[in-house]
Nucleic acid binder design. Sequence first.
DNA 1: AAGAACAATTGATAAATATCAATATGGTTT
DNA 2: AAACCATATTGATATTTATCAATTGTTCTT
Lengths: 231, 231
Amino acid sequence: MAGLNLIKSCESCSCRWMNFRHLTKNELQLLNLNRYEATFKPGEIMVKQGSPTSNALFMSAGLSKIYIEGSRGKNFILGIASPGKLILGPGAYVNSRHSYSVAAITAVNACFISVDIFKQLTKENSAFAESLIEDISIKALETHNRMVNLVQKRMSGRLADALLYFADDVFKSDNYDMILSRQDLGDMTSMAKECVVRILKEFEESGVVYSNSSTIKILDKEKLVQISENG
Amino acid sequence: MAGLNLIKSCESCSCRWMNFRHLTKNELQLLNLNRYEATFKPGEIMVKQGSPTSNALFMSAGLSKIYIEGSRGKNFILGIASPGKLILGPGAYVNSRHSYSVAAITAVNACFISVDIFKQLTKENSAFAESLIEDISIKALETHNRMVNLVQKRMSGRLADALLYFADDVFKSDNYDMILSRQDLGDMTSMAKECVVRILKEFEESGVVYSNSSTIKILDKEKLVQISENG
DNA sequence: AAGAACAATTGATAAATATCAATATGGTTT
DNA sequence: AAACCATATTGATATTTATCAATTGTTCTT
């Protein structure tokens, strides 16, 4: 199995989870022995909501979307996963079920790491455990923030937030490919796909954001931030 | 200072945090030495969003509301805190600032416990640390669920959720005092206070819930659950 | 008990958002 | 290049929700 891996070892991996810095050489080796890599094509499901949390995931290449499958077939997109981020929902510590689904957007390489090993490491290494608490806490803060924004802002503010999220957190650039469909953008900002189109058009007419169906260029970031803040 | 405390010690406390069961006698004593009790009158602020997270809180009596102060004076009510629950936002592990405010609804007794001590205990006692991760994870799951519901359901479904939350999680009874104002109920369900009134009236007209300004009686729970599920 | 202050209620209306149906566009397959 | 598919776009309309203004009820104070 190790022969199939693209990445030589966790010790030398350049895109490993930051918090693995707290692990000793031995612990990293243990990790390395209990992982395997897989590749996914665009659109393929990497993690299915409700399935057992046997593994945590770490992507080494590509982008994927994390989404909750709500009732009546409606999805809610939590965010974009990229290399270096832990993919393991809160269900792992509650009911041992994945609390969200993850689907590849681009071609993706990912490491599967046994949750049992993962939990064992948190037990043995308190610095590592604390860093996990930090990671979870950061996500909780982001979620709180997200929820308040979704609930208190109008459509243009919500869409501005999403565009800024891609620029600042995902691509670190104000020009980027819009990897989500209009429908997905709607699922992320709680609006109908037609409304996404209309608000994007408004942004374009006011010279804030240029967009075509697959590209975004933020032209006036200050104004976009203002739109986000004014709700 | 110990003389001011109503509760004799953490060891014998009947309403202490469940996860303290993982602590040893010594650790409980350490906890006990580093706590102090306070009482709050209805309406008083117990924790202010943005203030330093020097202490975690545990209520021994009363009810309070946990809320995020959003932009432009709009609040968002996260939930109701009751005895036995840890009150410590994710900010404690991120920026050492309280990420939400907490205000007493009824008369409240609460213990303040030093966050430093709290963190020290998670470092020394891995079972305790894991139980904290579990606690945080449960809250994260609830938040995810909440967010999806708020975003995908219409007003009647959201209000039904809130009424069921009070019945099942807070009061464990289908008849209870509505301790929140209509405005607060609106801040919790993302709707205007006038709409809360109107939907409650609808519920009453269809025989699902009886309500006056300070009381709720769930008359047809199945139907209320249905309303919640149908969005 | 009168009055002040605040919360709840109601009705009318405006604003925000979703839905529906039709058309356009772009990329793929054949 | 024609046909096909999925997605994007547009316009018209319906639905949902918020806002405003006025009134009623409640609680607290004096």
